[in-house]
Design a protein around this nucleic acid. Structure first.
Length: 416
RNA sequence: GGAGAGGUGGCCGAGUCAGGUUGAAGGCGCUUCCCUGCUAAGGAAGUAACGGGGCAACUCGUUCGGGGGUUCGAAUCCCCCCCUCUCCGCCA
């Protein structure tokens, strides 16, 4: 939810328009919310009167009561009418306001999907190995798409053998790094209530991407961001505790609706994968520093895995409604001859905290927290990149140096 | 899954079975002041959040797990949901 009070500020609304929002909607929200304010004043005036009159009845003698009750009923009737007016306006304001995204930060480039600004490029663009990630995964006995499809359907896969050892090495490696940085590791619930999906900002917009559980009011999360957002929902956080950094390890479930025919090879895009996700509750004055730190961690991971990548500052029109700024890290995928997204990190400012009602308390009073999130390790996709960049001519997989202490292996051949 | 008991302010805990100065007794904690060789003990006052109006003192509204309903008026009555605890059953 955006800050309606600031909507009239030119700088604020300009940032919203840069994300492609209709200026007419902004004007409409401003007009409607001022009407709503008038209506609210009217309601509160009548409520005050109604309260006063009702309290008087309690103190009145039995003989006086009938007349007083009748008078109170008249006030009540007027109140009910005023409330209807208010509720109508409130519904309209809320519906329109939910369509408005958080303003883009000034450092975010204009434009859409193709207008991201490449702010760093590390490593080269090596030629494709003999096998692409899907063939190599089958060759090693690491990935079985057919078995996955047979048991669960398309876009499901069995991850087996050495890939599992690499998965856990990746996770352990990331957790060690994040814990050293003050992150609290978390294994959160992956099934959440509808209200949590709403509060985390995924419902109603992304509802079609989410699996629901028959017979229970529960939904499978597409990212640990959802339950991590719940950690301080409704809290009044003492500002001396900030920043609060968490990293969640969880399986992630995505319906991938609307992606038919895209990325069908291997495990690049699957319905279920494991991920280590970072989540930060920040002081509003320091969230941009936290954002840079999240990027730094993501880059450090890619640097240490020696993967060639670039960093993109996503353009305003391509940002989701919650993000004021987002960096994508894209790794070179040799078989496709293209950079593909591996991780990303966003600063949501107070957009999400407003809905979560997560505030920080300090000497200057109470303010909404800022929330940020970023990917540390998206396991399946990371395996895809590793399977191409660490593939040897003899058909073996060389374990990245940095993972060796975590799995005790230097090289892995095909599973017998 | 079956049976029962509960969810009240930062915490504990009255009030609910007779609806009306109860936004909520009392206690703990916390803040300020007094007393006091130091500390402990003691005394006084203050101490919920959120939204609106006001320079401010202050004032109005909302909130007693959540959502509906009855009523002039609901912590209190009715309905639905959530959660916690105890016992039984079941299970990694």
């Amino acid at each position: 939810m955006i800050d309606l009070k600031r909507l009239a500020e030119p700088g604020y609304s300009a940032g919203i328009k840069r994300k492609g929002a209709d200026g007419a909607v902004i004007d409409q929200v401003i007009a409607l919310s001022s009407q709503r304010h008038e209506a609210q004043l009217a309601v509160e005036r009548l409520r005050a009167e109604s309260n006063t009159v009702s309290k008087a009845i309690g103190k009145a003698s039995p003989e006086d009561r009938p007349a007083k009750i009748e008078a109170a009923a008249a006030v009540k009737a007027a109140l009910v009418e005023a409330e209807q007016t208010y509720n109508t306006l409130d519904g309209q304001v809320t519906e329109l306001a939910l369509q408005l995204p958080v303003p883009a930060h000034e450092s975010v480039p204009d434009g859409g999907e193709d207008d991201g600004q490449i702010i760093a490029t590390v490593g080269g663009t090596p030629a494709a190995p003999p096998m692409d990630h899907a063939d190599f995964g089958r060759h090693l006995g690491w990935v079985d798409n057919e078995l996955g499809a047979d048991v669960s359907g398309s876009r499901f896969a069995y991850i087996m053998g050495g890939a599992v050892q690499i998965e856990f090495a990746l996770v352990q490696y990331a957790l060690a790094k994040l814990v050293a940085r003050g992150f609290v590791p978390v294994v959160p619930p992956v099934l959440v209530r509808e209200q949590m999906m709403v509060d985390a900002g995924f419902f109603p917009t992304d509802r079609h991407q989410v699996y629901s559980i028959e017979g229970d009011d529960l939904f499978l999360v597409g990212t640990a961001e959802v339950p991590l957002a719940g950690v301080h929902r409704g809290d009044r956080i003492d500002d001396t505790r900030l920043p609060l950094r968490y990293c969640g390890f969880s399986s992630c479930f995505r319906r991938e609706a609307g992606t038919y025919g895209k990325d069908t090879r291997g495990i690049f895009r699957v319905h279920q994968f494991d991920k280590v996700e970072m989540f930060v509750w920040s002081d509003p004055d320091k969230s941009w520093d936290e954002h840079e730190m999240l990027l730094e961690i993501e880059r450090e991971i890619l640097d240490e895995l020696a993967l060639p990548y670039r960093v993109v500052n996503i353009a305003a029109g391509d940002l989701g409604s919650a993000a004021a700024k987002k960096y994508d890290c894209e790794v070179w995928l040799p078989s496709e001859g293209a950079y593909r997204e591996v991780t990303s990190c966003s600063n949501y400012l107070d957009y999400s905290a407003r809905r979560l009602d997560a505030r920080i308390k300090g000497e200057s009073g109470s303010r909404f927290a800022h929330t940020l999130n970023g990917t540390a390790i998206p396991v399946a996709r990371m395996l895809v990149f590793l399977m191409e960049h660490y593939q040897q001519a003899d058909g073996t997989f060389t374990v990245p140096e940095v993972l060796r202490p975590f799995c005790g292996l230097d090289s892995i051949g095909p599973r017998s």
